[in-house]
Every structure is written in structure tokens, then in C-alpha cells.
Design a binder for these strands. Structure first.
Lengths: 269, 269
DNA sequence: CTAGTTCGAATGTCTAGACAAATGAAGCAC
DNA sequence: GTGCTTCATTTGTCTAGACATTCGAACTAG
């Protein structure tokens, strides 16, 4: 425990294995963040583990403290570690780790839940939309949108009815693709370079119509979960407008929230 | 337009009005972030506005570049501005601004939506909970939890039924407070120092029971939105377990999502 | 007019220090 | 023991620079 000793003998920690390449194209702070990130993901650094002091890590990596802090602040933002003045840097307990609210397609969502997603195409129309839809997409009078109606299945069973709308201007020729087989988001990204960046969802509960009951094979006295989703691209332009009707007995939406650390925007009345 | 001119004369920008106090207890970078943040909130800096170069702002504020970047990176994380190498720093368009998924109590949620929240206490019990609840709170055999049933109203109309459960150990004497008048979260924070840090919600659609219909004054053929919420504190300990049953015709949940910028944790299957 | 080049300007990354402030433990007085 | 003080440790904040990288505009050659 004498400082004269610890400076001469290198303590072996999980960090000893980290090697950084100062000449690599990825910046040093990212290399370190990723390295520590995978130590966290693999469980080598369990929740509650106290990281070595910054100055020790700096010496070990041969970098300056500001660079190390750039890495740790990244992980701190993600909620994976927690630094406290006078105490140290501690690995966060899993429950508090930020579970990012993701922009996910139906297929991705189902796969994330461990199911097998499928689709049956009901209709694919190219039509001049009603006023609210036209306004959302900021279209001129006669511009058209694709309206794609599908039954979405999980493990072979009907789970949801989906009506996706997307302007023709963004993806001309969309009807050529087999939307029963492939994910709409995949087609949009691969063939048109369109990527969703943000979305707003409004989740409500409704009594199903008789047509919905039939298409979903709904038992009596079952409600449906309706999700209206607005999707935007990186350039803030609207991308997609979707209404999904889920079987209430087989699906529920999961939302993760965390107190935001930022002191900005405290505009609560 | 001549650089020789602009160096001698100070260009007047919205940033000229920002004054920082180097001796204040709030760090400089926070002062600047907040100042720019309110310029953004007030609309003085409209979307698309290009901020002056970092070096110019540094000189104006009399600070070093790293300190300024600490401020702008905060705002960048929040999605309020967007810095691009070789280009500059631009104010983000409003649609892409991160709308943080907040941990909110019923009262806060209703107020955020511009309504007046109210409560009617139905019952407040102190009981030994069933196994699933006991497991969630990690309680021993005979430890009790408060079970608080309330009708939650918006603008005088019943909107939801809420059953909140919280361990007695965390807040002994909770029954002394007037939970019809004050928010449970406020009591927990002010009188017991308990603060929710994160929560997980599961949102589902159900057909109401006849009792729920009566208490909520539900019209026929109306579904209810059921939200089961698990709340945790900063130390990862469970704080509260709540089941809320909302009128489906008057309430829908709003969820905002954004693609995360981090390259970490890309563990998609 | 077009395509390629050059170059200035802007942010990105990094350094090697400095002092401040919070924390918790050890020691001390009682 | 109990409560207070002291102190070493640790992260938080900040500086004044350096060079790298990217972008787009202006210029040039054809």
C-alpha cells in the first residue's frame, strides 16, 4: 500500500489487456471507450466494480487525462459507469443502465423479443392521401403516397395489422419489392438510402372493429393496442406514417425511461 | 466581408449578450450551455442558424476552446445543435431534438399536457404482498408494503385508476400524508429523500371490468390502457410498483425515440 | 461549361499541466 | 464510544496551446 511500491510494481487489472493504437484512424478515446465497453458487456467488470483512478489508467495507456475522460464520459453518458468526485468511478448496476428507446421496425421488434416475424401483404396502393397525411408529408396537391397494408405475424400467428404510408417521391418503384418477405425499413435503407432517425409514437387502447377481429383472429372481449407512429429522417424530413393495430392479448409496448442528467430545458410549469 | 475589418470591429451576435462569471459556483461550461440553451429555447437562434466559429466564441467569452467545447458538446448530446467538422455548428431542426423520455408522475404528466391533476383516495392499506410483488421489492416474508388506490382526475374528470405499491421500510408513516392533495412522488422526495431514477413501463390494452367502468364513468365499448410501471432509485433499489388503468377514450401514451449516436453496444442479432 | 485542384476555414483530437471541490477514512479530543 | 478535525485520494474544471481531418468554395485547366 506504499506509493513507492505501487509505482514500481504494475498491479494487474482487467485493463492491463487493453492495447491502444495511437496511429489508428479511430481516435484513442473511442478505442478506450469500446475496449472498456466490451469489458462491461462481457461481465469482466461486474456492477459495483470500482475502476482504477484516472491517473493510473492514464499512465497505463500512456495518454493524457483529458483523453481518458473523453472515453469515460462517453460511457458515463450511456449510463454504463458512474463517476463521482471524491469517490471514484463505479460500474453501474444493470437496472439503471440506459435502455435506449430505439427506433425499431416491426421485424426488429419481434426479433428482439425472440420471435420470428412474418408478413402477409393485404394491399399496396399508390394514392393521393387525405389532408392530414398530405400535411404531415408536406406534399403538394396531387403528389401520391404508397399505402401498404399488411398483416404482421409472430411465429406464424397474426399479431398486428399495419398500415404504412410513405411518399412516392422518396421511393419510386417501391411496388417492385416483395414486402411480404423483406422488412420495409431494410428496403428503404438498402435501395433508397432512407434511414429513420427519430420517431414519435402515440399508443392508445381501442375496441377492435369486426373486420380487425376477423383479420387478427381475435377472441371475444379482447382489446387492441393501437400505435400511431411518425418517423423522421436525419434531415428532419418526414419519412413514414404508420398505424399499427396489435392484438391486446398478445402484445404490450415496453418503454424505458431515465431521469435525464442535463440541467437544461427544465421547462416544467 | 474583409477579414481585416472583422478582426478590428466586434460583430454583434446574439452571443454578445452572454455574460459569464468565472468565480461563480456553477462551472463556466454550464453557464455557457445554459445561456445558449435559453437562446435556443426562446427562438433567438432559429433552426438552421450557424453559430460563430469556436475560436471566435472563445475569444468573446475569454475562455479556452476545450471549455467551450464542453458546453457545446452538452448541447450536441441533447440534439439541440449539430457540429460538423469542416462545416460549423448548426442549430438543429426542432423535430429531431431529443425529446427525453422522462420519469414522470401522474401529476407531472397531466400538468405537462396542460391539465389540472387531482386525486381521490380510495384506500390505503399496509399489507403483506403477494409473491410477485414481494420478489420485486426483495422483501422478507413478513415485511409489508403500502398499497395506495386512487382515482386520478384531469380537470375534474376521472381519467385513471391507480394502484401504487411501495415498501413500508422505505417510507414508514406514509399514511400521515394527504395523498389526495399532494403528489406521491413529492412526498417521497421531500419527506423521505426518495427519488425515482429510472423506470420500465409495460403498456397494454384491455377490456375494462365492470368495477373499472363504474369508477371511471366509462361509456360502453371503450377499452382501457393499462400501464404497469416499475420504478427504481439511483442505487438500483426498487422503489415503487404501479398499475394504472387509463380511460382509453381520453388518454394515450406518447413515446419519443431516436437513433442513438453511440457506436457502443451494437448487440443486435 | 465541366472536372479536377488548391486552399482557407472549421471542428476533431490530443497534450501536460494546474487548481478546486467532494468524499471518506483516520486520528484526536472529550 | 462519540463527535469533530485533518488529510490523502479522487474526480471536476480549466488553460493554452498543437496538429489532423473534413468540407466547400474558389480557382484552374481543358
Amino acid at each position: 500500500m506504499d506509493s513507492a511500491v505501487t509505482t514500481s510494481t504494475q498491479t494487474i487489472t482487467p485493463f492491463s489487456s487493453i492495447r491502444i493504437d495511437k496511429d489508428a484512424s479511430t481516435p484513442i478515446y473511442l478505442q478506450i471507450a469500446e475496449a472498456i465497453g466490451s469489458l462491461l458487456a462481457s461481465g469482466v467488470l461486474p456492477p459495483g466494480y470500482v475502476l482504477p483512478p484516472e491517473r493510473v489508467l492514464c499512465e497505463q495507456f500512456g495518454i493524457s487525462r483529458m483523453t481518458l475522460r473523453q472515453a469515460t464520459s462517453l460511457l458515463d453518458r450511456e449510463g454504463l459507469i458512474n463517476s463521482r468526485r471524491g469517490v471514484g468511478t463505479v460500474v453501474t448496476h444493470s437496472r439503471l443502465r440506459k435502455q435506449q428507446q430505439e427506433v425499431r421496425s416491426f421485424s426488429e421488434e419481434i426479433r428482439a423479443r425472440g420471435g420470428r416475424p412474418e408478413s402477409r401483404l393485404i394491399s399496396l396502393d399508390l394514392a393521393v392521401p387525405a389532408a392530414p397525411v398530405r400535411d404531415f408529408f408536406e406534399l403538394h396537391d396531387q403528389q401520391k403516397v404508397y399505402e401498404i397494408q399488411r398483416v404482421r405475424l409472430k411465429d406464424g400467428e397474426p399479431l398486428a395489422l399495419e398500415l404504412a404510408r410513405i411518399p412516392e417521391r422518396l421511393c419510386p418503384g417501391l411496388e417492385r419489392f416483395d414486402l411480404a418477405r423483406s422488412s420495409l425499413y431494410e428496403v428503404l435503407e438498402r435501395s433508397y438510402g432512407l434511414r429513420p432517425e427519430a420517431c414519435n409514437e402515440e399508443i392508445s387502447a381501442e375496441i377492435p372493429t369486426s373486420q380487425q377481429r376477423k383479420l387478427l383472429g381475435l377472441p371475444a372481449r379482447t382489446a387492441v393496442l393501437v400505435i400511431n407512429r411518425k418517423t423522421y429522417m436525419e434531415n428532419e424530413r418526414p419519412l413514414e406514417l404508420t398505424r399499427s393495430v396489435f392484438r391486446g392479448d398478445r402484445y404490450s409496448a415496453i418503454v424505458h425511461s431515465r431521469k435525464s442528467k442535463s440541467i437544461l430545458q427544465t421547462t416544467s410549469s
